[in-house]
Design a protein around this nucleic acid. Structure first.
Lengths: 153, 153
DNA sequence: GAAAAATATTCAGGCTTCCTTTATATACGG
DNA sequence: CCGTATATAAAGGAAGCCTGAATATTTTTC
């Protein structure tokens, strides 16, 4: 590769490190032939439903930080591909609730496993102490800077 | 915001930290009214020309990691807006060399300043020791993992 | 208890950023 | 020179996000 990391801005280091980790997780999941019809953006929906099933589109969008319309497209696609299904919300007939199918649950488990594996690899590469320090430092950057530029992200 | 950073995967922490820093740098540059016609992707071209002026389109694309065609669009746009100019390569009449204009140089200086400011802010937030540790850790992640997944990024 | 306001979703269309394919001009090795 | 490689450009498309407007339903308010 052309660039030595030497004296790159920290933002570039963060981006590259993120890209490497994200690519590992994503390729680990889609390399299972069952799931090779997923694209990275589908993760926006799947990640949330792994945590809590049966959400409404609006909630899903809010948690992922994208518009309801964008999330609608992702959910359309994931529904077509058989990962999700929409069922009417019995309490609010404007809304539908979005559930993982069996296939969706299998995928969610694979994603979780891949993410956990990467955390392990990271901790192994860095050692427990530096791994913990890194996470704390990143959390400090997020909470320390977020307030400064509300809503710019 | 909805998510507490607690036990998010490290990849998510890296992405959020990157987004915050990148947004700071970008908004700091474009908030100068002179430069409010730039979009983030223009940085792909400008960043490289800050380092070395007079590159050919192909080199520029290679260094930025995008196709020559994509870079061609960015350069078209930046030329229209007066940041760059193309001049024929005297040694190879197939090629053109791309130079910063005065306006382009002014912008490059502003970008460099914004980047430096963010590094300072980071070092101040974390303290010198943790700032240095963070950078070294990120470099270690990049060099430690890059070899594993060659070309997946 | 009806009119007004808010909410959930969908439909239509657009923008940005990147891509692939194809065309054209130029360079260079044998 | 002739074939192949290289530099750029032109045309069109896919992905991922957006805004605005339409529709159905719920909640609020007077």
């Amino acid at each position: 590769m052309a660039n030595s990391p030497h004296d790159l801005p920290s933002s570039a280091l963060l981006r590259t490190a993120y890209n490497i980790l994200a690519a590992r997780i994503f390729t680990s999941v889609v390399s299972q032939t069952d799931f090779n019809d997923l694209r990275p953006s589908h993760g926006n929906a799947m990640e949330q439903l792994e945590l809590e099933d049966g959400l409404r589109l609006t909630d899903l969008a809010g948690r992922a930080g994208i518009t309801a319309q964008s999330m609608g497209e992702l959910v359309d696609d994931l529904e077509t591909k058989g990962y999700l299904e929409r069922r009417p919300d019995p309490d609010d007939r404007r809304a539908k609730r979005i559930y993982l199918t069996d296939r969706g649950r299998k995928n969610a488990r694979a994603a979780k496993r891949a993410t956990t594996d990467v955390e392990h690899d990271l901790a192994e590469l860095l050692g427990e102490q530096r791994y913990t320090d890194l996470r704390r430092t990143l959390e400090d950057i997020i909470s320390g800077f977020r307030s400064d530029d509300e809503g710019l992200i």
